[in-house]
Design a protein around this nucleic acid. Structure first.
Length: 259
DNA sequence: ATGGTAGCGGTGCTA
């Protein structure tokens, strides 16, 4: 089961590039972030014609997540539990029925800048809520994959210029500690488990020639429950997508599970 | 120190 995460930065702007990548990479499941569309505006029929089931959790202009799956989906949950007043569309869950059933969470974790301020407070509160939700899901002791744009640089080796990020919400000690608390629940960073080399990134800013200078960061992750980690066969970043026509600032990251 | 780019939506916010 090939499971990808891809922050597309707008479904309308990325329809062509996303379609081309789906055809070449052929993931069984693609978790999308920043669809920047309401559910009714998402081109669901386009993806259904390609053989994908489509579940969205959208909002106007900002955020928005979706799951595309060639395999049957069950028990869809929209929105991160734990705060009924939260209106930001950043979380969607579903169980994918392959050879094994895999619970998949697609997430768009808040950016958190500027620091300090309400946006950073929201980021940390959101991460605490996510930890509670993951703890709950882990009690099932089944394959669980939490993938998406975490907006966290886990370690210095995950940034080309870590010194530039010291004051940033993506790299502050509190952000990294909250990410580490997720790992310490027993989750595995799939890409880091399969790729030891530093300097492999999933995001390059549109500004200041970040791509041309390879000034990137690795912030799109798959965290796996122990039962999912046992099934892990591969984890890769589709870096070449960033050099294509009208790219997102993120590239797809995928894992392959024996499931 | 500043401003640089992209998307959405039709202005300024978000990143």
């Amino acid at each position: 089961m090939k499971i990808a995460t891809y922050n597309i930065n707008g479904i309308k702007a990325r329809l062509e590039a996303l379609t081309a990548w789906l055809h070449s990479a052929a993931p069984d499941v693609a978790c999308l972030q920043e669809i920047k569309s309401v559910d009714e505006g998402f081109p669901r029929e386009h993806f259904e014609a390609m053989g994908y089931r489509v579940e969205t959790h959208g909002q106007k202009s900002f955020n928005g997540v979706a799951i595309l799956s060639k395999l049957p989906l069950e028990d869809v949950v929209r929105g991160l539990p734990g705060d009924a007043a939260d209106e930001q569309a950043r979380w969607i869950e579903a169980t994918v029925i392959g050879q094994r059933a895999v619970r998949i969470c697609g997430l768009y974790l808040p950016n958190g800048n500027p620091v300090p301020g309400p946006k950073y407070d929201y980021k940390l509160a959101w991460m605490a809520r996510m930890q509670a939700r993951v703890q709950e899901l882990l009690t099932a002791e089944e394959p669980l994959v939490c993938c998406g744009d975490y907006n966290v640089i886990p370690q210095a080796e995950d940034a080309a210029r870590p010194q530039d990020w010291l004051e940033d919400a993506l790299y502050l000690p509190q952000s990294r500690a909250a990410f580490r608390r997720l790992l310490n629940l027993g989750l595995t960073d799939a890409f880091r488990a399969r790729n030891q080399a530093a300097g492999q990134y999933s995001f390059w800013d549109f500004q200041r020639g970040a791509w041309e200078r390879n000034n990137g960061i690795r912030i799109d992750h798959h965290l796996l429950s122990p039962q999912a980690a046992d099934l892990l066969r591969d984890a890769q970043i589709d870096k070449q997508v960033r050099a294509g026509e009208k790219p997102s600032d993120h590239v797809p990251v995928w894992i392959d599970l024996d499931a």
